[in-house]
Amino acid sequence: MAKYLLAATYQGSGLEGLTVDGGTVRVEVVRSLVENAGGRLELMYFSFGEYDTYVLFDLPDHVTAAAMAIAVRAGGLVNGHLIPLLTPEQIDAAVNLPIAYQQPGR
């Protein structure tokens, strides 16, 4: 499973819907969305400022994450930034891969 952080902002009537449904209903909607995609919701927090929600969840892979992001954004009521997260062990594996790269101008 891959872990993701979604920082999202409600747009237009999406924010109006939040005021009608409340936070706990929206969390259950997001939980259902993630679980129906084969994932697991770890946590969801509401905020104020640049983003309205922060959601931490696992999904099977990047293709599933892309499909979910497309479906949510296509509705036009939520705008978000989906951020893939890596564990320290995944970074250890990445820095130990033999990658050959030449810097520009060298």
Rank of each mutant, 00 (worst) to 15 (best):
L85R: 09
H81N: 15
M1V: 08
D92H: 11
N96Y: 03
E35N: 10
H81I: 10
N36A: 15
D58E: 14
A69Q: 10
T64M: 05
D92L: 12
L18P: 03
L43S: 15
G12P: 03
G12F: 07
G75M: 03
L6W: 01
E89S: 12
E42K: 10
T19N: 13
I83E: 11
E50Y: 08
P60D: 05
P98N: 14
Q90Y: 06
L33V: 10
V27C: 08
L82C: 09
V34T: 09
Q90C: 11
Q11P: 02
P104D: 00
P84I: 00
Y45I: 09
G80D: 07
Y45T: 13
V30T: 13
R26Y: 06
L59A: 06
L77Q: 12
L85A: 14
L85D: 09
M68G: 00
Q11T: 14
P98D: 13
L43Y: 11
M68V: 14
V63D: 11
L86V: 11
S47A: 15
Q102W: 06
V20I: 14
L56Q: 00
V30E: 07
F48P: 10
R73E: 08
R40C: 03
Q102N: 05
A71W: 03
V72D: 02
A67L: 12
R31C: 01
L97D: 09
M44P: 07
P84R: 05
G14M: 01
T53K: 06
H81W: 01
V55D: 06
M68D: 02
E35A: 12
D92K: 12
V20Q: 14
D61W: 01
L97T: 15
R26W: 03
Y101S: 07
F48D: 14
G76D: 03
Q90N: 14
G105V: 01
V95N: 09
T24L: 12
D92S: 15
A69K: 07
A94I: 02
L77V: 14
H81Y: 08
L97N: 13
A8Y: 08
L97K: 14
A7T: 06
